[in-house]
């Protein structure tokens, strides 16, 4: 199992090439990086995992896109929305993770969404970018939301993924630094270690054995 940064944005969205990002991530201690819109590969021993981010707000379009991407080999991420949207999305199999939970209203991800995420093996992304780059009330709000998320996680045990959403090599943080940062919202070191390795589980999910006669 390798530690993976669950989302980074290289050039042209960011200011570093995907190779440089992979090189720096490897030097920091990551075994893989998830890059939206990139092809699968590796560089300097770091695995590059392709992903698709669906940013639609219409649930029918989201489901259509999930179906289209089903066998593409990409990880499928969806940006969270209001409560109804999240419940509908989380009830749909084929999705790998739901992201941007710090941007939605507080009741947007509740105990029912948490249970659906657990039942369908859909990971919930913890975005570290606002923790690092925001200050004051904005950061307090994000910390508050992640505290709430950890409360739900301790009850429902849905998978978590951790992403730096780095647009530059200067935004990347090492697994050790991430472990420290996650203590700010009460995430235990074991949970952080598991969250760093969740992407590997999403790539090869554990399925029940079928015995054919």
């Amino acid at each position: 199992m390798m530690d993976t940064d669950a989302c980074i944005h290289p050039y042209p969205v960011g200011t570093a090439s995907v190779r440089r990002m992979a090189m720096e991530a490897g030097a920091l201690g990551f075994g893989g990086i998830v890059v939206p819109g990139e092809v699968a590969g590796g560089y300097h021993g770091v695995r590059i995992i392709p992903a698709v981010i669906i940013r639609e707000t219409d649930i029918r379009r989201v489901i259509g896109q999930i179906r289209r991407q089903a066998n593409s080999g990409n990880l499928i991420f969806v940006d969270a929305g209001d409560n109804g949207f999240n419940r509908a999305v989380l009830a749909h199999k084929g999705l790998n993770a739901i992201r941007c939970l710090h941007r939605i209203p507080k009741n947007g991800f509740d105990h029912i969404s948490a249970r659906l995420a657990y039942e369908n093996g859909i990971a919930v992304e913890i975005d570290l970018y606002p923790l690092i780059h925001e200050k004051g009330i904005a950061r307090q709000r994000v910390l508050n939301r992640y505290n709430d998320l950890m409360r739900l996680h301790s009850r429902y045990q849905f998978p978590l993924i951790l992403s730096s959403n780095a647009c530059s090599v200067l935004d990347l943080r090492s697994p050790d630094e991430i472990r420290l940062l996650c203590t700010l919202f009460g995430m235990k070191k074991d949970d952080t270690n598991r969250a760093l390795q969740t992407v590997s589980t999403l790539l090869s999910p554990v399925e029940s054995v079928m015995v054919t006669p």
Binding site: L131, S168, L170, D171, L172, R173, S174, E177, L180, L184
Partner: peptide, 20 residues
């Protein structure tokens, strides 16, 4: 202090990252 340093992103308006 290490946590605070992780959240440090610029020095005198110049983008920077510090790693312990």
């Amino acid at each position: 202090l290490r946590i605070a340093i992780v959240t440090l992103t610029s020095v005198a308006e110049r983008r920077i990252a510090l790693h312990a």
